[in-house]
Amino acid sequence: MLEVELDIFSGMPNPTWTLTYEEEGELTERIQAAPEQVSPLNPSGQTFGLGYRGFIVRLIKDDNGPWSRYQSTRETPFPHEFRVGNVPTDAGSSVAQWLLETSAGRAGVDDELLSSASRGVNLIPPPPEDMPPQSGGSRASKQEQSFEGIRGVWLDPCPDANSLYWDNYATFNAPGVVEKNNCYCFAANHIANRRYALPGLRGGAPAQSMSVGQIASGLDADGWRETCQQPDGLTIAAAIWPGYDYHLYRLVTNGDEWLWAHKPGGTPVIHEDSSGRTLKRTQTGPYTDIWIHPEDCDRGEYSVFVGFYYQANATAKVK
């Protein structure tokens, strides 16, 4: 018996359903015809961003069905859990395309999710070769910036002496950890092994919907504040895909770069936005900078920025 997960959210549970016997047979035939479509959950050489990342297929019961029988014929059986959709293939034989076409109306898969997924797997492109400079200034105050036609404002984080920074992505990307901790776990610097940790759950007031008010209230219940905290603390940023999901970022280095990182769901931590631009400040000359940060970057479907939040902890416990 096979379970299918549409890997599209970062914080909230992904749509998941069980294939019928007939559907399992169809999927088995498609993979048998093109086994190269099967990939590890986090394949090397690919960097996933926010949004659609293909489908995760897992064996939940060995019941001598079509998939189990096919596995028994392979010299090297596939793992019990794998990804499809991230390897280019002919549309007619694509397992992911077939799963997408048969997913409508199942486990909450509506037109918006189908539309988002139909644009393809969100793989982070290589960073651009040349980025034009933009006017900037001292980080001691808000600076209005423009980059590639996008107007933004840089909000100075807490002073260096009052913030804690760890670019500890390797800890969260370790096997057995990466798939069990979501964006909130990383933002809070807490390996909680909570794949769907939720703002407010630890504080007794879990977010009830993916709205600015609910996510803000949930973070407040968990001890996050909108002003710098003493003596030392974490700096994070929150955004939402309205009605569907939330996503969190963490500031991981101090000035002059101010590097941010984030973890899209159960995939590895990254430093880039959805356009492949590194989330940091780049000095391009004595008086010119490029600022790319969570409030003013390409967040894909996470179009509404909630705010910056702070907590006076090296690790903010989450549930």
Rank of each mutant, 00 (worst) to 15 (best):
R250I: 05
L27K: 01
N122T: 09
A207D: 02
Y184C: 03
G92Y: 12
G307A: 10
N182P: 00
E144T: 15
N86Y: 05
W258F: 14
S217K: 06
R119I: 06
H262K: 07
E5T: 15
T16Q: 09
E75P: 00
A104Q: 11
E226Y: 01
D167F: 14
D232H: 14
E29R: 13
R106Y: 06
S163W: 00
R194S: 14
M131E: 13
R277H: 14
W241P: 00
N313E: 05
L99Q: 05
V269F: 08
G149L: 08
L2C: 09
E101Y: 03
E101Q: 13
T20H: 05
P231Y: 12
P199A: 08
A91W: 01
G137C: 09
Q230N: 07
P128T: 07
A91D: 07
P132K: 15
E272F: 15
L27G: 01
Q46T: 08
Y52M: 05
G108Q: 11
T171K: 04
L123V: 11
Y184R: 01
G120S: 04
L123K: 07
I215T: 10
E23Q: 14
Q37I: 04
N162H: 14
F172Y: 11
G51A: 11
S211F: 06
N182V: 09
I8T: 10
R195Q: 13
G105T: 03
Q311N: 09
R106M: 09
A261H: 14
T315Y: 04
G200F: 10
F305T: 05
P66L: 13
M1D: 03
E75M: 04
G92S: 09
A117P: 02
G108H: 09
Q97P: 00
E26K: 14
